[in-house]
Protein backbone atom coordinates (compact mmCIF):
# COMPACT_ATOMS: atom_id res chain seq x y z
CA UNK A 1 0.00 0.00 0.00
CA UNK A 2 2.73 2.41 1.00
CA UNK A 3 4.84 1.39 -2.00
CA UNK A 4 1.93 2.00 -4.34
CA UNK A 5 1.47 5.47 -2.86
CA UNK A 6 5.16 6.26 -3.31
CA UNK A 7 5.03 5.02 -6.89
CA UNK A 8 2.05 7.25 -7.62
CA UNK A 9 3.82 10.29 -6.19
CA UNK A 10 6.96 9.46 -8.15
CA UNK A 11 5.04 9.09 -11.41
CA UNK A 12 3.23 12.36 -10.83
CA UNK A 13 6.53 14.12 -10.28
CA UNK A 14 7.95 12.62 -13.48
CA UNK A 15 4.90 13.84 -15.41
CA UNK A 16 5.01 17.33 -13.90
CA UNK A 17 8.73 17.49 -14.65
CA UNK A 18 8.09 16.61 -18.28
CA UNK A 19 5.36 19.22 -18.42
CA UNK A 20 7.07 22.15 -16.74
CA UNK A 21 10.81 21.66 -17.22
CA UNK A 22 10.77 22.84 -20.87
CA UNK A 23 8.72 25.91 -19.88
CA UNK A 24 11.07 26.88 -17.08
CA UNK A 25 14.21 26.22 -19.10
CA UNK A 26 13.00 27.83 -22.33
CA UNK A 27 15.44 30.31 -23.78
CA UNK A 28 13.12 32.36 -25.99
CA UNK A 29 14.20 35.98 -25.96
CA UNK A 30 11.93 38.24 -23.93
CA UNK A 31 10.11 40.87 -26.04
CA UNK A 32 11.27 44.41 -25.43
CA UNK A 33 8.56 46.55 -26.99
CA UNK A 34 6.48 47.03 -23.81
CA UNK A 35 9.64 48.05 -21.96
CA UNK A 36 10.54 50.53 -24.68
CA UNK A 37 7.01 51.97 -24.85
CA UNK A 38 6.86 52.40 -21.07
CA UNK A 39 10.35 53.90 -20.98
CA UNK A 40 9.27 56.60 -23.43
CA UNK A 41 5.65 57.22 -22.41
CA UNK A 42 4.95 56.07 -18.84
CA UNK A 43 6.20 59.20 -17.11
CA UNK A 44 4.24 61.53 -19.37
CA UNK A 45 1.05 59.52 -19.38
CA UNK A 46 0.71 58.75 -15.68
CA UNK A 47 3.08 61.09 -13.89
CA UNK A 48 4.76 58.38 -11.84
CA UNK A 49 8.44 57.68 -12.37
CA UNK A 50 8.14 54.24 -10.79
CA UNK A 51 6.97 52.28 -13.81
CA UNK A 52 5.50 49.43 -11.78
CA UNK A 53 3.28 51.93 -9.97
CA UNK A 54 2.25 53.53 -13.22
CA UNK A 55 1.22 50.11 -14.52
CA UNK A 56 -0.78 48.85 -11.58
CA UNK A 57 -2.35 52.19 -10.69
CA UNK A 58 -2.57 53.65 -14.17
CA UNK A 59 -2.81 51.31 -17.08
CA UNK A 60 -4.12 48.35 -15.10
CA UNK A 61 -6.21 50.01 -12.37
CA UNK A 62 -9.25 47.86 -13.09
CA UNK A 63 -7.20 44.76 -12.31
CA UNK A 64 -5.93 46.32 -9.09
CA UNK A 65 -9.52 46.97 -8.01
CA UNK A 66 -10.29 43.30 -8.69
CA UNK A 67 -7.23 42.34 -6.68
CA UNK A 68 -8.36 44.35 -3.67
CA UNK A 69 -11.79 42.73 -4.05
CA UNK A 70 -10.16 39.28 -3.97
CA UNK A 71 -8.25 40.27 -0.85
CA UNK A 72 -11.49 41.55 0.69
CA UNK A 73 -13.30 38.28 -0.04
CA UNK A 74 -10.40 36.22 1.34
CA UNK A 75 -10.33 38.28 4.54
CA UNK A 76 -14.09 37.87 4.90
CA UNK A 77 -13.84 34.10 4.50
CA UNK A 78 -10.91 33.75 6.86
CA UNK A 79 -12.55 35.88 9.52
CA UNK A 80 -15.86 34.06 9.29
CA UNK A 81 -14.11 30.71 9.66
CA UNK A 82 -11.84 31.81 12.51
CA UNK A 83 -14.22 33.92 14.58
CA UNK A 84 -16.78 31.11 14.92
CA UNK A 85 -14.01 28.94 16.36
CA UNK A 86 -12.65 31.39 18.86
CA UNK A 87 -16.03 32.24 20.30
CA UNK A 88 -16.24 29.04 22.35
CA UNK A 89 -12.78 28.59 23.75
CA UNK A 90 -11.37 31.97 24.53
CA UNK A 91 -11.37 31.39 28.27
CA UNK A 92 -9.85 27.95 28.20
CA UNK A 93 -6.71 28.83 26.26
CA UNK A 94 -4.14 30.32 28.59
CA UNK A 95 -1.10 30.08 26.34
CA UNK A 96 -2.14 32.51 23.63
CA UNK A 97 0.60 34.96 22.87
CA UNK A 98 -1.72 37.94 22.63
CA UNK A 99 -3.24 37.75 26.10
CA UNK A 100 -2.33 40.27 28.79
CA UNK A 101 0.27 38.99 31.29
CA UNK A 102 -2.21 38.43 34.13
CA UNK A 103 -4.39 36.13 32.08
CA UNK A 104 -1.82 33.92 30.39
CA UNK A 105 0.56 31.31 31.69
CA UNK A 106 3.94 32.78 32.48
CA UNK A 107 6.32 32.84 29.52
CA UNK A 108 3.77 31.34 27.14
CA UNK A 109 5.24 31.82 23.67
CA UNK A 110 6.50 35.21 24.74
CA UNK A 111 9.29 36.74 26.77
CA UNK A 112 10.14 40.18 28.13
CA UNK A 113 12.67 40.56 25.32
CA UNK A 114 9.96 40.19 22.68
CA UNK A 115 7.72 42.69 24.43
CA UNK A 116 10.41 45.36 24.79
CA UNK A 117 11.75 45.00 21.26
CA UNK A 118 8.27 44.92 19.72
CA UNK A 119 7.09 47.99 21.61
CA UNK A 120 10.18 49.97 20.58
CA UNK A 121 10.27 48.85 16.95
CA UNK A 122 6.53 48.99 16.25
CA UNK A 123 6.13 52.77 15.79
CA UNK A 124 9.30 52.99 13.69
CA UNK A 125 8.07 50.26 11.34
CA UNK A 126 4.67 51.98 11.20
CA UNK A 127 6.42 55.15 10.02
CA UNK A 128 8.47 53.20 7.50
CA UNK A 129 5.32 51.61 6.10
CA UNK A 130 3.77 55.04 5.66
CA UNK A 131 6.95 56.21 3.92
CA UNK A 132 6.88 53.28 1.49
CA UNK A 133 3.20 54.05 0.75
CA UNK A 134 3.69 57.77 0.21
CA UNK A 135 6.79 57.47 -1.97
CA UNK A 136 5.50 54.55 -4.03
CA UNK A 137 5.35 56.63 -7.21
CA UNK A 138 8.99 57.72 -7.27
CA UNK A 139 10.86 54.98 -5.43
CA UNK A 140 10.57 51.20 -5.00
CA UNK A 141 7.43 50.48 -3.05
CA UNK A 142 3.76 51.24 -3.35
CA UNK A 143 0.46 50.55 -1.72
CA UNK A 144 0.67 46.79 -1.34
CA UNK A 145 4.25 46.71 -0.08
CA UNK A 146 3.71 49.60 2.31
CA UNK A 147 0.51 47.99 3.50
CA UNK A 148 2.25 44.76 4.38
CA UNK A 149 4.91 46.69 6.33
CA UNK A 150 2.09 48.58 8.06
CA UNK A 151 0.46 45.26 8.99
CA UNK A 152 3.69 43.90 10.45
CA UNK A 153 4.03 47.07 12.55
CA UNK A 154 0.52 46.56 13.88
CA UNK A 155 1.41 42.96 14.76
CA UNK A 156 4.46 44.27 16.63
CA UNK A 157 2.22 46.63 18.56
CA UNK A 158 -0.12 43.75 19.38
CA UNK A 159 2.78 41.79 20.83
CA UNK A 160 3.89 44.76 22.93
CA UNK A 161 2.10 44.97 26.26
CA UNK A 162 2.59 48.50 27.51
CA UNK A 163 1.55 50.36 24.36
CA UNK A 164 -1.70 52.25 24.74
CA UNK A 165 -3.09 52.53 21.24
CA UNK A 166 -6.41 51.92 19.55
CA UNK A 167 -4.85 50.72 16.32
CA UNK A 168 -4.44 47.17 17.62
CA UNK A 169 -8.17 46.85 18.22
CA UNK A 170 -9.79 44.61 15.62
CA UNK A 171 -13.01 46.65 15.45
CA UNK A 172 -11.12 49.87 14.76
CA UNK A 173 -9.05 48.13 12.08
CA UNK A 174 -12.14 46.68 10.43
CA UNK A 175 -13.76 50.12 10.31
CA UNK A 176 -10.64 51.68 8.79
CA UNK A 177 -10.61 48.89 6.20
CA UNK A 178 -14.25 49.44 5.26
CA UNK A 179 -13.81 53.20 4.98
CA UNK A 180 -10.70 52.87 2.82
CA UNK A 181 -12.39 50.35 0.54
CA UNK A 182 -15.39 52.61 0.01
CA UNK A 183 -13.16 55.59 -0.64
CA UNK A 184 -11.12 53.55 -3.11
CA UNK A 185 -14.27 52.95 -5.12
CA UNK A 186 -15.39 56.56 -4.76
CA UNK A 187 -12.01 58.00 -5.70
CA UNK A 188 -11.95 56.11 -8.97
CA UNK A 189 -14.97 58.09 -10.19
CA UNK A 190 -12.59 60.94 -11.00
CA UNK A 191 -12.65 59.67 -14.57
CA UNK A 192 -16.12 61.19 -14.90
CA UNK A 193 -14.40 64.50 -15.51
CA UNK A 194 -12.15 63.05 -18.20
CA UNK A 195 -14.16 61.43 -20.99
CA UNK A 196 -11.74 58.63 -21.80
CA UNK A 197 -13.46 55.68 -20.16
CA UNK A 198 -13.61 54.07 -16.75
CA UNK A 199 -10.18 53.65 -15.12
CA UNK A 200 -8.29 54.84 -18.17
CA UNK A 201 -5.05 56.72 -17.91
CA UNK A 202 -5.56 60.43 -18.34
CA UNK A 203 -3.20 61.98 -20.83
CA UNK A 204 -2.85 65.53 -19.53
CA UNK A 205 0.88 65.90 -19.80
CA UNK A 206 3.13 66.33 -16.80
CA UNK A 207 0.42 67.78 -14.64
CA UNK A 208 -0.01 67.56 -10.90
CA UNK A 209 -3.32 65.71 -10.89
CA UNK A 210 -2.21 62.49 -12.52
CA UNK A 211 0.59 61.66 -10.11
CA UNK A 212 -1.65 63.02 -7.37
CA UNK A 213 -4.22 60.36 -8.14
CA UNK A 214 -1.53 57.71 -7.97
CA UNK A 215 -0.31 58.98 -4.60
CA UNK A 216 -3.88 59.01 -3.28
CA UNK A 217 -4.57 55.49 -4.56
CA UNK A 218 -1.29 54.26 -3.08
CA UNK A 219 -2.23 55.59 0.36
CA UNK A 220 -5.77 54.19 0.25
CA UNK A 221 -4.69 50.77 -1.04
CA UNK A 222 -1.87 50.68 1.49
CA UNK A 223 -4.18 51.38 4.42
CA UNK A 224 -6.71 48.86 3.12
CA UNK A 225 -4.14 46.07 2.64
CA UNK A 226 -2.40 46.86 5.91
CA UNK A 227 -5.54 46.82 8.02
CA UNK A 228 -6.94 43.71 6.32
CA UNK A 229 -3.79 41.66 6.81
CA UNK A 230 -3.41 42.95 10.37
CA UNK A 231 -7.01 41.96 11.18
CA UNK A 232 -6.36 38.53 9.74
CA UNK A 233 -3.11 37.97 11.64
CA UNK A 234 -4.67 39.18 14.90
CA UNK A 235 -7.57 36.76 14.38
CA UNK A 236 -5.12 33.92 13.75
CA UNK A 237 -3.20 34.79 16.91
CA UNK A 238 -6.44 34.50 18.84
CA UNK A 239 -7.41 38.14 19.10
CA UNK A 240 -6.30 40.84 21.49
CA UNK A 241 -8.44 40.88 24.58
CA UNK A 242 -7.02 43.51 26.88
CA UNK A 243 -9.02 46.42 25.57
Amino acid sequence: MRKAKLLKVFLTIIIITLATFPIIMSNVSWPTFTRDYLFVNALNETGASNTVSSIYLGYRLMDTLGETLVLFVAITGTMSILLNLHKHELESVKTQSTLVPEKRVKNALRTNLVEVVASKLGPIILLFGLYVMLFGHISPGGGFQGGVIFASAIVFLVLATDVKTKITNSHVLERIEAISFISLILITTYVIFFPEGFFSTIDIGSSFLSAGIIILLNIIIGIKVGTSIAVMIIAMMGGKHDN
Partner: peptide, 19 residues
Protein backbone atom coordinates in the same frame (compact mmCIF):
# COMPACT_ATOMS: atom_id res chain seq x y z
CA UNK B 1 15.65 49.05 -17.47
CA UNK B 2 14.07 45.67 -16.82
CA UNK B 3 10.56 44.96 -18.10
CA UNK B 4 8.12 46.31 -15.47
CA UNK B 5 5.03 44.45 -16.72
CA UNK B 6 5.88 41.05 -15.14
CA UNK B 7 6.76 42.82 -11.90
CA UNK B 8 3.34 44.47 -11.79
CA UNK B 9 1.70 41.13 -12.60
CA UNK B 10 3.62 39.37 -9.85
CA UNK B 11 2.41 41.98 -7.39
CA UNK B 12 -1.06 40.60 -8.09
CA UNK B 13 0.18 37.03 -7.80
CA UNK B 14 1.77 37.68 -4.41
CA UNK B 15 -1.42 39.21 -3.04
CA UNK B 16 -3.51 36.30 -4.34
CA UNK B 17 -0.96 33.92 -2.81
CA UNK B 18 -1.41 35.59 0.57
CA UNK B 19 -5.19 35.23 0.19
Amino acid sequence: IVDPVPQALMLTAIVIGVC
